[in-house]
Simulated scan of single mutants.
Amino acid sequence: MNLFSTFEPSTMIFSLNWTSSLLMILFIPPMYWLIPSRISMMWILMNSILHKEFKVLIKSPMFKGSTIFFTSLFAFIMLNNFLGLFPYIFTSSSHLSFGLTLSFPLWMAFMIFGWWKNTTHMFAHLTPQNAPTVLLPFLVIIETISSIIRPGTLAIRLTANMIAGHLLVTLMGNSGSSLSTSLLMILIFSQILLLILESAVSIIQSYVFSILSTLYSSEVV
């Protein structure tokens, strides 16, 4: 046993660890049967705010409906992040396989569409405006590398931020048995504050993932 064993999925063939990503399906349907409810109104308000944010970034009028897709992506990641904060629930979003499964197909679809439909526009992205002629070969290489590593940076950012908070919670929790009563109360209060922070991180990271995906999609049109 080591500190990172918490994040290791079971090697069993019929492992139930990854089913945590599907638990949200059990929570969402009741809101559609209990209308109007606070949950449904909050959900609609969140979707309308995200729609306005994504609509500004998506410049082409042809892709206005794609805000629904990026809003769903935000909700999916956010709910997975929140589920990982509950005890004994596998944190699927703390694994690179989760982030890469979302980011790599999106990036590949953007690249295929961009180079197929807007080849000149994609070439123009590799050479920034008003750049010195001498630096153009190096800028093309840098822009190409930055474009290739985009799915990896999206996945690593999500994974690292989710692992960091969970590790801190685990480290603080393991030290509770050796503390006195007064220090234990301080530890519990600190854990509550840390869980509140992790809840905010869960929302922020899902927003960052979806907003960067929207920005990448706007560059290919």
Rank of each mutant, 00 (worst) to 15 (best):
2 N>A: 12
4 F>W: 14
6 T>M: 04
7 F>A: 13
9 P>I: 13
10 S>G: 12
13 I>A: 11
13 I>M: 10
16 L>I: 11
17 N>I: 00
19 T>P: 01
22 L>Q: 08
25 I>H: 06
25 I>N: 05
28 I>Y: 12
32 Y>M: 15
34 L>R: 14
36 P>G: 15
36 P>R: 06
37 S>E: 09
38 R>V: 15
39 I>L: 15
39 I>A: 15
41 M>P: 01
47 N>C: 09
51 H>I: 02
52 K>D: 06
58 I>Q: 03
59 K>S: 12
61 P>N: 07
61 P>L: 04
72 S>N: 06
72 S>M: 15
72 S>D: 02
75 A>V: 05
76 F>T: 10
77 I>M: 07
78 M>N: 06
78 M>D: 02
79 L>H: 08
81 N>H: 04
90 F>V: 00
94 S>R: 05
95 H>E: 06
95 H>V: 05
96 L>E: 04
96 L>G: 12
97 S>P: 01
98 F>K: 04
100 L>T: 08
100 L>G: 08
102 L>V: 03
102 L>G: 00
105 P>F: 01
105 P>V: 00
110 F>I: 09
111 M>V: 12
114 G>V: 06
114 G>P: 03
115 W>K: 05
116 W>M: 11
116 W>A: 09
120 T>L: 11
122 M>I: 10
122 M>V: 05
126 L>Y: 07
133 T>D: 09
136 L>G: 02
141 I>Q: 08
142 I>V: 10
145 I>R: 02
146 S>R: 15
148 I>Q: 01
149 I>R: 14
150 R>K: 13
153 T>H: 08
154 L>H: 10
155 A>V: 04
155 A>T: 05
158 L>I: 04
159 T>S: 10
161 N>G: 11
161 N>R: 05
161 N>Q: 09
162 M>R: 10
167 L>R: 03
168 L>D: 02
170 T>K: 04
172 M>C: 01
172 M>V: 01
173 G>D: 03
174 N>K: 08
174 N>A: 11
175 S>L: 14
177 S>H: 13
179 L>P: 02
182 S>E: 14
186 I>A: 13
187 L>K: 12
187 L>N: 12
192 I>E: 00
193 L>G: 00
194 L>S: 03
195 L>W: 03
195 L>Y: 07
196 I>N: 01
196 I>C: 07
198 E>D: 10
201 V>H: 00
203 I>H: 04
207 Y>C: 09
208 V>M: 10
211 I>G: 00
214 T>I: 15
217 S>F: 15
